[in-house]
Design a protein around this nucleic acid. Structure first.
Lengths: 189, 189, 189, 189
DNA sequence: CAATAACCGAGACGGTACGTCGAGTCTTCGC
DNA sequence: GCGAAGACTCGACGTACCGTCTCGGTTATTG
């Protein structure tokens, strides 16, 4: 019994969700509003998604690559700076920021969704950085005993922290500083 | 024109909010429920608070000290481990976690509230750690050029990151690892 | 696009409204109470009625005949006495009186409703009396030039007046007196 | 203990009530609005009046004569027409009409108020007409056995009826017709 | 190549909570 | 010591969405 799902409806819903998110902000994104804008019955949404969060997640990940490849210039510091600066840029973009914010909210109240967000949205990014660190370790630029998982979070954690708590400006300079500190922690003496 | 505010009502509201939060979870915390349990008119809540988030924040910070003093055993590593382990414990405690979760949700949708949470709830903690780091720097245990603000976030960022994204277990071991990495980054060679 | 209205809800609402009116009096008739007793969402009421008054009106006119037939005994005085005494009885019955009272209140603040009450509740009665008068005129019992519309109001006006202003007892005797006076005015000399 | 009542407040309240009534309609006349406009505490109103209706009644009767004297031109028809046309004019004036409407509403829900309205506002008028009818009876223009109380209501009842139920235009012609009918009923043959 | 079942849009339904308004009571403070 | 100012509890208002549930209408296999 293959589910005979209407592709037009699916896309209309995801598009509507994204538009509402960027145009009117998170609180305006309701199932009812999505359905209305997509020209779709509410049931059609509930039939295929568990709720608002799942829709938004799908809207964001639709057409995203599963695996991210990081540049490898040979110089770890350069590459990490690039990655973290890109993350800063994402947070600075109001649309992206609003979206991430929305997803994070849903995430806090829904463990299933949290797992999905983690696996489909964040993991690829973290894994890519981890892979880059591993190759750097192989090249002797990183201490062989460095706990790479923690190092990855040492890089991204502060950025999320600052974004979440608005604990100060989130700039390229800040990103570079975090990279420098992290490298100081893992560079072989 | 001093606002003649009823202290009994105020306390009943904050108490009710806390109780609901720990007893029945975040979704059960509605203005209506708070008012009912506190034996108070809804208007009295709206008169003094902007919304659910503001009430919860007040409930949490009511009677909290403005300045936190960190223990100073002389050994920075010991002290930081203690602080980070305490944070891990807070995240592990379902009550505290639910509360933080609730506040974070509200925070994401309300900039004013975010600022308040940051200044009244988080800052004291961060500042205390920063002060401890400063004293360690004076004692020569930390590189004199270390950017202390960033170092503080290097410590807490990963914890929040892991809590938010459930990116792995949040244990004392993890906390210790973060402390070690951070100290490796800032210890004078 | 036929409105797929739930007949059960409709009837539950009208029944609940009538019951509340007779059991607990007009002030207890709130949309909220009607909804609760009918086991219905408030929105379902607001979807189909403009407000309390419209619901009550519908409750009263639901299943009422559009046209009223008056008895015609051949003797006008007898027939009119019967009609006016029935009206007096209605005003004397606390249930009917409460209902009329309620509707009248709503009527005073809502022109649309007033028109509906007039057309669906009062007009049939007035028209019936007018028809009886017309037949009496044809039978030569009423002056051919009598303005029947005014004569009808000459009959009912004083009753309403006395009910509204509690300007004295509202009894069968009074009703009979009004009939006599009116007939004196329109009987051919 | 003579009530040391503030005359300024009293007048401010009555004035405010009248103004609100004519400016914004009945539903806008709330105790709160009256108090605000009068620059008076709500308590001051509740201290001296039973509620909205009592205030409005006082506002209307303040400075009204207790006894009304009807013109006596010698011709009953002329005099009655004048009185009824004046009543029609009052009903036609939106301000007066709104006011009467408001009072009538209150009246329906408050027996005490109803008695007051009847005695202080309506009775003088009705009594005056009754007195004129009595003098006409003495002059032989009205049947000696005519029940004057009912005759008075035969005159005013239809007007109220038509006003209340918007049962047709309320014009001088109509008033004249009622006078004619009534006189036909009571003129000696 | 019908029939039949899942999907679709539409939107009504029973609910819950929202944030506001006014009622009538109670308290504080200034004139 | 009155009275303005207004905070208080209470309850209803009318609205917004929730998630579920028909209702016809429209595909698009499958018997």
């Amino acid at each position: 019994m293959t589910p005979r799902r209407n592709e037009n409806s699916r896309r209309a819903i995801l598009t509507a969700a994204l538009e509402l998110l960027t145009e009117t902000g998170y609180t305006a994104v309701t199932i009812e509003a999505i359905a209305a804008r997509a020209g779709v019955g509410k049931q059609t949404i509930y039939r295929w998604w568990r709720g608002k969060g799942a829709v938004i997640l799908d809207a964001l990940t639709d057409g995203l690559p599963d695996v991210i490849e990081l540049p490898d210039s040979g110089d770890l510091r350069t590459d990490l700076r690039e990655v973290l600066r890109a993350t800063v840029a994402e947070f600075a973009d109001p649309r992206m920021s609003a979206t991430t914010r929305a997803l994070t909210i849903e995430t806090l109240a829904d463990d299933d969704l949290a797992a999905q967000v983690r696996d489909r949205l964040l993991r690829p990014q973290l894994d890519a950085v981890r892979a880059r660190l591993a190759s750097a370790r192989d090249a002797g630029q990183v201490r062989p005993d460095a706990p790479l998982d923690q190092v990855v979070e040492l890089l991204f954690g502060p950025l999320y922290h600052r974004w979440l708590l608005r604990n100060g400006p989130l700039t390229d300079t800040y990103a570079d500083g975090i990279v420098d500190l992290t490298l100081a922690a893992v560079t072989p003496r």
